[in-house]
C-alpha cells in the first residue's frame, strides 16, 4: 500500500480525480486530434497528398508561412523592446503599457480584424488616400500581416517581462562598469539570460500566428490563391463539402501544434540543468 501522507485522499477519491482529468483530456483534446487525422487520411495517403498539393492549398500554406515570417520577427523585436523598457527603466505610464500589452488577449478577434478595416478599408479613415495611391491593405497581404501582428504581440512580451523584472539590472550594470557598450551588454548579458523565455515566446507566437482565424478572416476577403491562409482555407474547403481536403490542411495545423509542444518540452528537458541554474541563481 502507498505511504499515507496527511494531504493524501482516500484511494477511491484519488482514482476518481485521475479518471476525470484523463477523461476530460481524452474527450476534448485527443479525440478531436484523432478525428482530424482520421478524416484527413479517410481516403488514403494519396488523397491526402493530392488535397495538400493542390494549387490553392499550396498558396494558402505559402501565405501562412509568409505572414508568420513577418509577424514573428516583428513581435520578437517589439517584445524585447517592451520588456526591456518595463523591466529596466522607470517611466510614467509603465503600468498602462503593461496592461495594454494584454489587450489582444481580452479583445474579441473580430474587433482585432475590424480595426484595420475601419482604418484602411474603402470606407475607412485612410481608405481614400490608399486608393488614390493604389495601395491595398485590407483584403490583401498587408492587412493579414497587421491583424496577425496585433493578435500575437502579447506572447513574447508576456514571457519576457516577468523574467527580466525578476533578473533586475545588476548584471547589465556590471557589464557596463567592466567596459561593455550597450549593444555588447545586450548581446552577451541580457539576451542569453532570457533566451529560454524568448524561445517559448517565439514558439507560442508562431503557433498563434499560423493558426489565427478570427481577425484574419475579417481582413482577408477570402480570395482563393491570394488572401487565404491555412485556417481560412480549411473553412472554405469544409463549406464546400471537401472533407478530405479540409481535414488534410487541418492535419497540418494540428501537426504544427504537436510539434510546437514537443519542441517546447524537448528544449526544457534538454537544457533542464541550465534552466534550473539560471532560476536558482
Amino acid at each position: 500500500m502507498a505511504r499515507r501522507i496527511a494531504t493524501g485522499d482516500p484511494t477511491p477519491v484519488r482514482w476518481l480525480l485521475i479518471t476525470v482529468a484523463l477523461g476530460f483530456l481524452a474527450v476534448f483534446l485527443v479525440l478531436p486530434l484523432v478525428a482530424v487525422l482520421a478524416e484527413a487520411f479517410a481516403k488514403g495517403v494519396g488523397a491526402w497528398w493530392v488535397a495538400l498539393s493542390g494549387e490553392d492549398s499550396r498558396a494558402a500554406i505559402r501565405l501562412t508561412l509568409i505572414v508568420a515570417a513577418i509577424a514573428v520577427p516583428l513581435n520578437v523585436a517589439f517584445g524585447l523592446c517592451a520588456s526591456w523598457a518595463v523591466a529596466k527603466y522607470d517611466f510614467p505610464g509603465k503600468s498602462l503599457l503593461v496592461s495594454l500589452i494584454d489587450l489582444p488577449f481580452s479583445v474579441s478577434p473580430v474587433i482585432s480584424g475590424l480595426v484595420w478595416v475601419l482604418l484602411f478599408g474603402a470606407q475607412g479613415l485612410l481608405g481614400p488616400w490608399l486608393q488614390a495611391h493604389d495601395l491595398k491593405v485590407v483584403f490583401a497581404i498587408p492587412g493579414i500581416v497587421l491583424a496577425t501582428v496585433f493578435v500575437t504581440f502579447p506572447f513574447v512580451a508576456r514571457e519576457l517581462i516577468p523574467l527580466m523584472e525578476e533578473q533586475g539590472r545588476d548584471e547589465e550594470e556590471a557589464a557596463i562598469v567592466l567596459g561593455a557598450g550597450g549593444l555588447r551588454t545586450f548581446w552577451s548579458v541580457t539576451l542569453p539570460n532570457v533566451k529560454w523565455g524568448l524561445l517559448y515566446g517565439v514558439l507560442l507566437c508562431n503557433a498563434r500566428a499560423m493558426g489565427e482565424f478570427g481577425a484574419v478572416s475579417v481582413v482577408s476577403g477570402h480570395i482563393r490563391g491570394l488572401t487565404n491562409t491555412m485556417p481560412l482555407h480549411v473553412e472554405i474547403l469544409y463549406n464546400e463539402y471537401d472533407f478530405v481536403g479540409a481535414f488534410a490542411v487541418a492535419s497540418l495545423l494540428a501537426l504544427l501544434a504537436v510539434v510546437t509542444l514537443a519542441a517546447k518540452t524537448g528544449l526544457e528537458w534538454w537544457h533542464r540543468d541550465e534552466i534550473a541554474a539560471s532560476r536558482r541563481h
Binding site: D170, E171, E173, A174, V177
Partner: peptide, 19 residues
Amino acid sequence: RAKDRRVGFVFQHYALFRH
C-alpha cells in the same frame, strides 16, 4: 562614461553573469 572609467565595482548581490 561608466565603461571608460576603469573602475571596478563589486555588487552587493555579486551580479555575476549567470549563464
